[in-house]
Structures are given as C-alpha cells and as structure tokens.
Design a protein around this nucleic acid. Structure first.
Length: 507
RNA sequence: CGGUCUGUAGCUCAGCUGGUAGAGCAGCUGACUCUUAAUCAGCGGGUCCAGGGUUCGAGUCCCUGCAGACCGACCA
C-alpha cells in the first residue's frame, strides 16, 4: 500500500481524480472560464421580487457541501467572498444521464475543489441569497484536504490558529481566513496612498541596487554574498539612502523608493531579516518641512484606510491628525528620565546609566549613551505620534549639523506607541564634513562598534559635485502596516515571514 | 542565548496516580429535491514530533534533539 506519505483522504482524492478522467472530464482544463460577476457583487445588489441576475457565471472554491439526495447546497468562495449555491439533479442533468450530479458532484468533488458555475440568483426559504446552478464545470481538482472551519452566529468552530501552519502554509491561511486576505489588501492600500501623495507632488519612484559593494546608509550588520564573475563580495542592502541622495545630486527634485532591506540580526515579533522600507528625499527642503510632510502622509494613509485619523492599536486609539507633538531629545530625557544631559561628559552619562540600571559597553560613545537612556527611559512614554528632534551628532553621521544647537543634528524620529515609525533629517550635503563624519565612524569601528558605518567614497564624490539642501525620511512599512491594521507581530503583516526551514516531515 | 508552555487522526482538541488511544468536524457507505455548525444510520482512519533511557509494560516518567508560542536578554 502507498500509505507511507499519503493520508487516507489524499488517497481517496487521487482515486476520484482518476475516475474523473475516466468519465472523460479534464480535472485541470486549459480553457479560460467566462466569469462575469463576483459573489459579493451578487449579495450586495440582489433585489427581491426582481428578476435580477438571471444568468451569472462565477468561479471559486467549494468550501462546504450539504448533500440531501437529489438536491444539494454548497458554498462557493471566490476572491470577493462566499455565496451559497443550489445544485438540483434534474436541473444540472435535464436528460436521462444523471452522471454529472450523481457521480461527479456528489461523489468525486470535494471541499477545496475549484469549480465554475452558471445559473441564476434567488432567495431560499431560509432567506439566503443563492445561485441556482444550471451548469457546473470542474476547473481544478484539489488533492489535499482543507481544514474545515465552520461558523454559526459569528462563532468560529475549529478555526486554524496555529501560527506555524499559518505562516508556513500562508496559502491555506488565506483560503480559510478571509480576514487575512483583507489584511494584505490593506497593506497594499497603505502603499498606494503614499504613492498617490508622492506622485501628486511630482516625486519620482525609483529603484536602486539591492546588491551593493558597500552596504551604506545605516548602522546594521549586513548579509554577505558573492559575485562569481566579478569574484567580489557583495552585500544585500541595509538602506537605500546613499543611492537616493546620489539621484538628488543628479538633478531630481524628489525621489522615493519602496525597498526590501536586509539585516542580519535577530528575529522576533517586530524584526524580520528582510523588511520593507519607504525612503523619500526632497530637494530644497529641511527637516521641519519633512515633519509636516510626514504628518500629511500619515493623515492620508489613516483616512484612506479607515475613513478617520483615529486608529485602534492594542489598548489605545492612535490619532494621526496633525499636528503632532514635537520635543527635543534633550527635553524628553529631562522630562521622562529626570536627567539634564546638556552639560554632561561621557563619564557623567555612564554614571547616569549605572544609576538607572542601564547596561552599556566601553565602545559606546556619548551619542550612543544618550540614545540608550532615551530608549530605556523615554521612548515608551510616547504613545500618540510624537516627533523627537535634534539627535546627537555622533549617532547621526549623515545628518546636517543643527543650525543653532552645537553638537546636535537636524534629525527627527517619529515615535508611535512607544516605537520608532519614521526617521528623517536635513541631509548632510557638505562633502568635507561628510568625509570627516565617515572617518569618525571608522574610529568608532576600531573602538569595537561593529555597526559603525563604512566609508562610501563614491557618495562623498557625489556630494563634491554639489547636492542641494535636501531632507530625507524613511518609514518602516511593516511597522506602519502593523500600526494601521492593529497587528501585534510582523509575521502577521508579511505574506511569508522568515522561518526555520522545515524538516523532512511535510513534502 | 535564558525561563515558561506546547507538539496525539486531514483540522480543532481530550487522554487522571504508567496497562500499546478517544470525541467533534472532515472522509467513506447508505437515506433524504430549499439546507445552512444540515440531519439520520453505519464504517474506516494514528511513526501519539524524533532518538535514547527507566520499567514486565511508556502517549503518559527521565535525558537529548527538532519545531513552535509567550516572556526576558541581545539587536534598531
């Protein structure tokens, strides 16, 4: 027997497949099927007492069957939703030969099969809008049993909630959990809203290299790969920033990119090794303008998605209606950590960290220590959208020095629900200053900071030709999607989150 | 990396202080031409995650491993 890898139910389906072929029916026909309407369209537009939808043709997956002898009900699910169908033997098979109903429909079809139907809409005695089937076509035979989720009065029975199954076999998750399909529509809608805004401002959507010889633009550990023909190591990008600014040098007023970035670091509820970022750079602007623009983006995204700026997130309602609070990092630390860092030396900051029980290492400079205190003591207090502005120079090597405040840079991060959502600056465009900042990063690297930035001499060369004053901003799209759709983990907003490879168990 | 929990039929889950497995759904056979968690009668289905150990005997106890979830650490 072939029971080794194939369950009883799978064997039955394979037998059915053969019998379908013996009946002269192709279980995987090539011809297109002339669908002319969706399930949801019928359900919303059906009017009682009118002869509407007298001839509809739709296709989808059989999700349940209720066979009663010579007439049956089933549920058909297309991409829009589910609709009940009514299959009566003598209507499906008007002649003597009842094979199509008795054998094909009742015996050889299963939950999960994809069929096409032609018929008319009516309302049953129980009050449900239903398609009375006159013609039925098998479009694709399913060989694996689908988890059957039942529902009554809004209560789900046997719902599949096992995250491993849902992430590894996302296709099954999408089939049986319609809200998951809806969630990913929202993800796409969020990106569409942003594109609309950027395009209406005349900014250009561009693509820049994923394989980079120097992984620049951020502080992170990269993935490394190798190019055979060139025989050189290449890195998967950790950010788009330097390439996009080179395009501003090239003369575009505004460029943006939705990009996959890759960081070879930990994985958890909020981090996936590959993730999506939107970065935008606009010439002749500064970070003050970018704050207003960021407000505009989020207001539009929330409104397009929910019809309001108020969005539920966990126990909170986040209101994306501008303006958002703006507070300097120094003031934030003063207010929430009770520490005045303005006159402090590196040693003073270390003592404050010790006093507050914050772990730190000798390789950390002043800026990193300040960042640490903020992250530990302040960040989580900012639930409603808040701009934290004016970061230490040391941790912002691509940012213009603050026009008034010594030692600080014109940078902001947008904090929502205690987490960073966006990061932006007035871009450093002084090539000599930029080179010095890169060299400072080198010194940090030698001190043991393994995520200090590499020097990108081509970027310095580009700046030497002259880059207009520019402001740039990046938004973590996965995190934004989590915030806008009230999802607690990044795996839920990625179709295929990174998982450990499966063993040999399921093939 | 550390702590807690989990892994049993296609799916959701029971299985007590050790005695070689059970329910619902799904499947199969039959009945039923407006059902809707359809119903009724009957039937089959298991590498109890893997490997080792204790024991006369392990789904159950012990060890190791694998996979997952949650919490922490690290990490933006």
């Amino acid at each position: 027997m072939t029971t080794l890898h194939i369950s009883e139910q799978e064997q039955v389906r394979r037998q059915s497949l053969e019998e379908i072929r013996k009946l002269g029916i192709d279980p995987y026909p090539a011809a297109m099927y002339p669908v002319n309407i969706s399930a949801t369209k019928i359900l919303t537009d059906f009017r009682d007492g009118e002869d509407n939808f007298p001839d509809v043709c739709l296709a989808g997956r059989i999700m349940s069957r209720r066979i009663m002898g010579n007439a049956s009900f089933a549920e058909l699910m297309d991409s829009s939703g589910r609709i009940q169908i009514y299959v009566r033997r003598d209507d499906l098979c008007p002649g003597e030969d009842k094979t199509l109903y008795n054998t094909l429909f009742k015996k050889l079809l299963d939950i999960g099969d994809i069929i096409g139907i032609r018929g008319f809409a009516f309302r049953t005695q129980m009050g449900e809008i239903t398609i009375h089937v006159k013609e039925l076509t098998l479009l694709s035979k399913s060989l694996r049993p689908l988890p059957v989720v039942k529902e009554k009065d809004g209560v789900l029975y046997d719902a599949v909630t096992d995250p491993e199954m849902r992430y590894r076999q996302r296709y099954v998750d999408l089939i049986i959990n319609p809200e998951v399909r809806e969630l990913f529509r929202k993800r796409t809608q969020i990106m569409r809203s942003m594109r609309e805004l950027f395009d209406s401002n005349g900014y250009l959507e561009v693509e820049t290299p994923i394989l980079q010889a120097i992984p620049g633009g951020a502080a992170a550990r990269p993935f490394i790969t190798h190019h055979n023909a060139l025989d050189i190591p290449l890195y998967l990008r950790i950010a788009d920033e330097l390439y996009l600014k080179k395009l501003i040098v090239g003369g575009y007023d505004g460029v943006y990119e939705f990009s996959k970035d890759f960081r070879n670091e930990g994985m958890d509820r909020t981090h996936n090794p590959e993730f999506t970022v939107m970065e935008i750079y606009v010439a002749y602007k500064d970070y003050n303008w970018m704050m207003s623009f960021t407000e505009q983006i989020l207001e539009k995204v929330a409104t397009d998605l929910h019809g309001t700026t108020r969005v539920a997130l966990g126990d909170h309602i986040i209101d994306y209606k501008p303006p958002y609070r703006r507070i300097s990092m120094t003031d934030a630390i003063k207010e929430y950590a009770g520490i005045d860092i303005t006159e402090m030396s590196e040693d003073d900051l270390r003592k404050e960290c010790d006093a507050a029980g914050i772990g730190h290492s000798p390789s950390m400079g002043k800026g990193k220590l300040i960042d640490l205190i903020f992250g530990e003591k302040c960040e989580h207090h900012f639930v409603q959208p808040t701009f934290i502005i004016d970061y230490p120079q040391e941790t912002s090597p691509l940012t213009k020095k603050h026009r008034h405040k010594a030692g600080l840079t014109e940078r902001f991060e947008l904090i929502v629900n205690g987490k960073e959502l966006a990061n932006a600056y007035s871009e450093l465009n002084d090539p000599i200053d930029q080179l010095e900042r890169f060299q400072e990063q080198m010194r940090l690297s030698e001190k043991g900071d393994d995520e200090a930035m590499f020097i990108d001499m081509d970027f310095v060369r580009a700046l030497e030709y002259g880059m207009p004053p520019t402001s740039g901003m990046g938004i973590g799209m996965d995190r934004l999607t989590m915030f806008m759709t009230n999802q607690p983990s990044i795996q839920d907003v990625l179709f295929f989150p990174q998982m450990r490879p499966e063993g040999q168990k399921n093939t």
